[in-house]
Design a protein around this nucleic acid. Structure first.
Lengths: 177, 177
DNA sequence: CATTATGTTCATCATTACTTGAACAAATTA
DNA sequence: TAATTTGTTCAAGTAATGATGAACATAATG
């Protein structure tokens, strides 16, 4: 259960947002995930958790995230749950330790695929009913507006269909990983 | 330059977030865009602007967004700029009116394509240099960690390559619109 | 040139979203 | 059963982000 000691000293730690419980490589990798997550609108803490786990050569338990990322219990618990629901991490059994241990899921298809489905496809579902409702309300519009809006609704439906057609292709291309 | 009067009364307006300068169809469509934008981490005001323009059967000038969306001059100006940079709206000439008029770009490929490039590809560029740096720093790690991290770096590179390979496919499938 | 119309910038404010930590629950150990 | 370990939940605080509007710039008009 002993950990190889990281090389860096404690100094200049907080300055960079992490303390020295992370070595410089981990800091870099985590930063990479944090940045990427940001561009997808995902919270920093979640990216930090995934990043650290991604670097780790062995499964980690909640305490370790709390300590090494200097993160609250609450955020850590929620972040782990979120990532597990997303399918980006999974639990593993570790003998003689009753804490739940996690490892990162590294099959791109699993992670990215689920993410796409959740983010994009979920929207489409919602749109369907909404578009029906919209088309139904055009009766109150001037003829000019009405024709235009019905065109637009058709267009949105077309976009949606295109999106749905693309998704399986993307999944297949993510697949061989 | 006269506008067909919208049907709804002024009441119960602010409650729904918009006032009655928008008819119920516009409200629905805008809401659809706002929601979708949200899931992509784009600001509400930008989605409102695009949504309104998407509904409009004629080009709109900045004043009209300000009035009808009840939005500040600043947000409107910035939102229009943002959307134009993204390629989601374009300016059009309107005779005898020196205000800049906008119309929405509705070719899915143009809008989604640029967005993907900006959001995703931009990240990849950044990662390249970062991954090089990371690999260089593994010398300070234990052998065990080092081997693992180098594996991970390889994996990230593979993900990146996969992403880059997928993008043109997606663009092509968005294309026929 | 003064005035008006159009549009941009940016410091400040407001809102949203994230994070925290205390309280709680459940399971385990002594 | 009491004490400890492990983990969750959620109200409240904080930080990040978005929105505002006044001041400014630029160009057109009379």
């Amino acid at each position: 259960m002993e950990e190889v000691l990281d090389d860096k000293t404690d100094s200049a730690a907080k300055a960079s947002g992490f303390d020295a419980r992370l070595n410089s490589v981990e800091v870099e990798v985590i930063h990479l995930f944090v940045q990427f997550a940001g561009s997808l609108g995902q919270p920093r803490s979640v990216a930090e958790i995934y990043g650290l786990l991604f670097c780790s050569y062995r499964p980690l338990a909640m305490d370790e995230f709390i300590e090494r990322l200097n993160m609250s219990k609450g955020s850590t618990s929620q972040g782990l749950k979120y990532l597990q629901d997303l399918g980006a991490i999974r639990t593993v059994y570790v003998a003689a330790d009753r804490r739940t241990h996690y490892e990162s899921v590294t099959e791109l298809r699993k992670v990215a695929g689920r993410f796409l489905r959740q983010q994009i496809l979920a929207q489409f579902e919602d749109n369907d009913s909404r578009l029906g409702r919209i088309a139904g309300q055009t009766q109150y519009l001037s003829e000019e507006q009405r024709k235009h809006i019905l065109e637009r609704v058709k267009l949105l439906r077309r976009w949606e269909r295109t999106g749905k057609r693309i998704l399986p292709f993307v999944l297949k291309m993510l697949g061989g990983e």
